[in-house]
């Protein structure tokens, strides 16, 4: 079982701030339920690819091949992304 609080911290710090080079914001300022795209953090849609690459590299969890609907659902916020990582991570460990 992966600790969800740790996953959220890694997503905020290592993926959003370091990998995407978000400036003028600290991990503490990113709310779990803030939308990543559009209003909210204001990421460009192409940056979703960097988030996907980061999730795979750090957690070994693949988002590749998912449908546009699932993609939007899981990449909505830090909360939805962390939930996806934790549950997918559990499944992958079990298999």
């Amino acid at each position: 079982m992966i600790d969800i609080a740790r996953v959220k911290a890694v997503i905020k710090e290592d993926i959003l701030i370091k990998r995407l080079e978000l400036e003028d914001i600290t991990p503490e300022e990113i709310e779990d339920n803030t939308p990543l795209f559009g209003e909210g953090l204001g990421l460009d849609s192409v940056e979703a690819l960097d988030v996907v690459a980061g999730i795979e590299q750090i957690f070994g969890v693949k988002l590749q091949g998912i449908s546009p609907e699932e993609f939007k659902k899981h990449l909505y916020s830090v909360e939805t992304l962390a939930q996806f990582v934790v549950h997918k991570g559990d499944n992958q460990e079990a298999s």
Partner: peptide, 17 residues
């Protein structure tokens, strides 16, 4: 005068990408 052959292969289809 060059005839270019362009070969593309799908790698992945993730969301709208």
């Amino acid at each position: 005068g060059s005839c270019l052959m362009i070969k593309v292969q799908l790698q992945e289809h993730t969301g709208n990408f």
